[in-house]
Design a binder for these strands. Sequence first.
DNA 1: GTGTGATTGTAAACATTGTACACTTAGCCA
DNA 2: TGGCTAAGTGTACAATGTTTACAATCACAC
Lengths: 242, 242
Amino acid sequence: MSADASPPAVRATYRHGDLREALVAAGLQMAEAGGPAAVVLREATRRAGVTPNAAYRHFADRDALLRAVADAAQGLAADRMEQAVAAAARVAGPAADVVAGPTIGLAKDPAADTAFDPAAGLAADARRMLRGVGTGYIAFAREQPGLFRTAFSVPDHLANSADPVKAGALGRTPFQILGAALDAWAAAGILPPERRANAELYAWSAVHGLGMLVIDGPLRGLSADMVTAATSRLLDMVERGL
Amino acid sequence: MSADASPPAVRATYRHGDLREALVAAGLQMAEAGGPAAVVLREATRRAGVTPNAAYRHFADRDALLRAVADAAQGLAADRMEQAVAAAARVAGPAADVVAGPTIGLAKDPAADTAFDPAAGLAADARRMLRGVGTGYIAFAREQPGLFRTAFSVPDHLANSADPVKAGALGRTPFQILGAALDAWAAAGILPPERRANAELYAWSAVHGLGMLVIDGPLRGLSADMVTAATSRLLDMVERGL
DNA sequence: GTGTGATTGTAAACATTGTACACTTAGCCA
DNA sequence: TGGCTAAGTGTACAATGTTTACAATCACAC
């Protein structure tokens, strides 16, 4: 806690330049270290080298600041998820669409095998994609518990799930990334149309629940290996049950 | 916020009698109204008719009080779950040998049963029980969002999941109630033994995730019907995927 | 250029909170 | 009866969110 990143932030000009951004950035730092409760308005202004009240020119109150920080955190979560999805796709290699790692046996049509059946290829891709989404989500929860809690336990509405302020570098929000994976499932024919509606909720619920329980719920303290295994098995359950 | 339950609580005796209990009770009230963040130590002492510092004779700090409140809230959750489990069992009709309540040891002699296929009866009972657990959990989240958040998002360890202080009136903690339902699944042969281990985590994750998302996550604002439907479909997924 | 008005920041102040330290009261037991 | 000790009180302090009044600056029409 001694030599922190930002120096007292002495500022020459009267105007800050982009105080709003600076406050959110400071908020992210604090959220990273201590979750949503650690996002304190005065400290944010301090780090921005500004008087406490200056924050009120950009945010109605502390809660508004916290929400902005939460949105930014969701963007970071989206980045981590995109990364995991990309990694999962890459694992497949150039040609082989063989199942990755812990994917349990769920082959539908035993006729289709390696390369010939295009539908099987689509299905394998879709499964990989969804696993990537879940893996990335849990990875973010484990790697950045403070940001995770900030991102996903600050009250918000479903209607805002696609708000661009929550998007990652690639322009998609976590919810949209998940939705895309489920669309892929539907397109590949492994998710019956009648079950596509609201499937986000179920998949998200499962993974979000694990994330919360792992980082600050009754399941805290599980070893990394246990969490990895649990994630894998949870995803198995989702795949089987969707 | 005007005429609150407890009068200023004027006290004749110097000793309070059971201050600890009074503080937890006050904390529960506040948690009910505003979640964990609303549990404020000074206000609790105020409601108990006592000086702020008196609380420090019973709790190391605000966090210790909050944890005690969370434990009590888990007990209330357990009560709601037991109720739902019992209701689910009752639905089965008088013939069923379903025993609600804390009875976990299932019938040992499969011969004795009303239906023809005893195994099928056991399986149906087990499914009903698990659905009851999930339904009760979500019902608690919806009926008491503040208590739910307090109960299940205050950091704790898995090792404490069976701590009697978290138990409901029937003596079981939420985790134990869930575990009993899964035991019933295993006993009925609908949960392969190799999948029984840690199955609590997956089932809990799914339902807990839905609970969190519904009450103060991105899914807040869904109508009651939508939540009911989502709960049912989520439980379908769990049943299919466990 | 130069006023003029809206933006953005500052100054001072207040109620509330968690918590430490030193004290008092009263229940209990030898 | 006397004293030990648990349980409450009083005072105090630093920190936080937030309000109200004021000052500096930018931006732009003239």
